[in-house]
Design a protein around this nucleic acid. Structure first.
Length: 394
RNA sequence: GCGUCGGUACUCAAGUGGUCAACGAGGGGAGACUGUAAAUCUCCUGACUUCGGUCUUCGAAAGUUCGAAUCUUUCCCGGCGCACCA
C-alpha cells in the first residue's frame, strides 16, 4: 500500500464526516507532523470497542509520524458531558477519576505507543481560567446553539432538567483544542457539537481551526449505540473468551460494519466477508472469523484461536468449557449457588429449576435435569441455562 | 417567592380507594427451534416459603379508612408558568 492509499483509507474507513477533508488530506500528504487531539472523559475505566475505533485511527496516524496529544479530562470528567446522553451524567469525584485513569492507560497502551504520546490533564489550563475569561468563551456561543441540539432539545421537550453546568462542557472541550494547538480532533458523530466548539474557540483565539474527523458509532450487544451507560459494551478488559462470545452474539446485520470498524483487516477482506454473506454463506462462519480477528487484536492470534476452539466446543459440540468456576461447600445446591451469586435468589433458583434449566452433566456428555429444588449439592459439573457452568468440589 | 403539574420496579411508562407484586415496552433470564450465545416463537422477571401462603415495595414521614400506589397534611426533589420589562 502506498502512502497515499494509506492516507485515503484513514480518511474514509469507518469515517462518517471530515471537516475539512481536502485540507486535512493535503496536510497528511505533506507529511509534516500534526498535533492530533485525543480527549478522554474518565467517567468509565473501561474502553469498549466503540471507543477503540477512534484509538486505532490515532494509531494509524501515529504510525505516519504524527503526534497524539492525549488529554485526560480530569476537569471535564467531574463536570459530566451530556452530548450523547438523554439524561444528566453524574459528576465524578476526584478519587473516582484517578482510579479510572490507572486502568485506562493500560488499555490505551494496547493500541497506541504510549511513549510517543504527549499527555496532559485539562486541569492544567481549565483550572486557571477566571470568570471573565469563561464569559468571553461563552460569548462565542448562543443559547440557541445549545437548545437546538437534538439531545438537549429532546430533554427539554420531555420536561427533563437541563443544568446550566452542562452547557459549559463544550466550552471546556473546545478550549482544550486551543490550549494544545490541535490540528486535528477525532471523535464520534455524537461529538460533533463539541468538536466544532474547538474550531470556534480556536478562531476566537486567532488560531488556525482544527480539522475534525467524525467516526461512525457502532452498535452494541443490544443493537443500541455501544455505550458504557447502557451496559451493552464489549470491553478491552473482557477476557478473550468473553470478547469472542459477545461478538458471536451480535446480530448478523452488524458483521460487515464490525469488520470495517472494529478490525484492521484489509478492506479487501471486509468486502470478501460482505460477498460471502451475499452468496448466502452461513453468517455464523463469517462471524467466527470476525470474532477471531477482534480477539487477536488485543490478545494475539494464539489466544484468539483458543477462544474460537473453546466457543465451538462449548456451544456447538456442547462440551464443557475447561475453565469453570469451582465451588466448595455443602448443603442444598440452591443455597450454595445463591451464596456464590450464581443465582440471584432462592426464587430465581426455583424458577430456573422449574424451567428445566438446571442440569447435572454425567459421563459421556449426558445431561440430567434437576427437578427437585431442594437437592443437596453433590460433587459434579452443573449447567444452568446455556452459559453458566459450575463445578461443585468436595 | 407565588401558582401549577409531577416523582411508580433495572430503564421508560400505565394505574387515580379493594379484582395491585402493580398493564405495556425495552433490558435481563429460560425453553423451543436453528445456521450461532444471531433471527423467530413461547414463558418468566420483588423476596421468603413446609407451595397452603407470608412479607416488603409505588419520593419521605405522619394521618384518614375495614382496606391506599391511589384520599389528606407536612417535607424533599423536578418540570412548566408568573414575578407588571429591567
Amino acid at each position: 500500500m502506498t502512502n497515499e492509499e494509506k492516507i485515503d483509507e484513514i480518511l474514509t474507513r469507518g469515517v462518517a464526516e471530515v471537516i475539512h477533508k481536502d485540507d486535512l488530506r493535503a496536510k497528511l500528504l505533506k507529511g509534516e507532523p500534526l498535533r492530533i487531539k485525543f480527549g478522554t472523559d474518565p467517567t468509565s475505566p473501561n474502553i469498549h470497542l466503540g471507543r477503540a475505533t477512534s484509538i486505532w485511527k490515532l494509531r494509524e496516524l501515529q504510525d505516519l509520524g504524527h503526534t497524539i496529544v492525549f488529554i485526560i479530562g480530569d476537569f471535564t470528567g467531574v463536570i459530566g458531558d451530556t452530548s450523547d446522553k438523554d439524561s444528566e451524567r453524574p459528576m465524578l469525584s476526584r478519587e473516582a477519576v484517578e482510579k479510572n485513569l490507572e486502568t485506562y492507560f493500560e488499555q490505551v497502551g494496547k493500541i497506541l505507543d504510549m511513549s510517543k504520546v504527549e499527555k496532559h490533564r485539562n486541569t492544567e489550563w481549565l483550572e486557571k481560567l477566571n470568570y471573565r475569561e469563561i464569559t468571553e468563551h461563552a460569548d462565542v456561543f448562543s443559547l440557541s446553539d445549545f437548545i437546538s441540539r437534538e439531545n438537549i432539545k429532546k430533554r427539554l421537550d420531555e420536561g427533563k432538567r437541563v443544568s446550566l453546568r452542562e452547557l459549559l462542557y463544550p466550552l471546556m472541550q473546545g478550549y482544550d483544542s486551543v490550549a494544545i494547538d490541535a490540528d486535528l480532533e477525532i471523535g464520534g458523530t455524537d461529538q460533533k457539537f463539541n468538536l466544532l466548539a474547538g474550531r470556534k474557540l480556536q478562531e476566537r483565539f486567532n488560531k488556525e481551526p482544527q480539522n475534525i474527523m467524525m467516526l461512525n458509532i457502532i452498535e452494541g450487544l443490544d443493537g443500541r449505540k455501544m455505550s458504557s451507560s447502557w451496559g451493552n459494551t464489549i470491553n478491552l478488559t473482557d477476557t478473550a473468551n468473553d470478547i469472542f462470545g459477545k461478538v458471536m452474539s451480535l446480530r448478523d446485520e452488524l458483521i460487515v460494519k464490525y469488520f470495517e470498524h472494529a478490525t484492521r483487516v484489509p478492506m479487501e477482506r471486509v468486502q470478501e466477508a460482505e460477498a460471502a454473506l451475499g452468496r448466502g454463506e452461513n453468517p455464523r462462519d463469517v462471524k467466527l472469523d470476525l470474532a477471531e480477528e477482534i480477539v487477536a487484536m488485543y490478545y494475539g492470534r494464539d489466544e484468539a484461536l483458543r477462544a474460537r476452539e473453546s466457543f465451538l466446543a462449548t456451544f456447538q459440540k456442547k462440551e464443557i468449557p475447561d475453565d469453570i468456576e469451582e465451588i466448595k461447600g455443602e448443603g442444598k445446591l440452591g443455597e450454595l449457588l445463591k451464596a456464590k451469586e450464581i443465582v440471584s435468589s432462592m426464587t430465581d433458583w426455583r424458577r430456573l429449576v422449574g424451567e428445566g434449566a438446571v442440569k447435572i452433566l454425567k459421563e459421556g456428555g449426558v445431561e440430567e435435569k434437576i427437578t427437585d429444588d431442594t437437592v443437596l449439592a453433590t460433587p459434579g459439573v452443573y449447567k444452568i441455562g446455556k452459559r453458566r457452568f459450575v463445578k461443585i468440589v468436595e
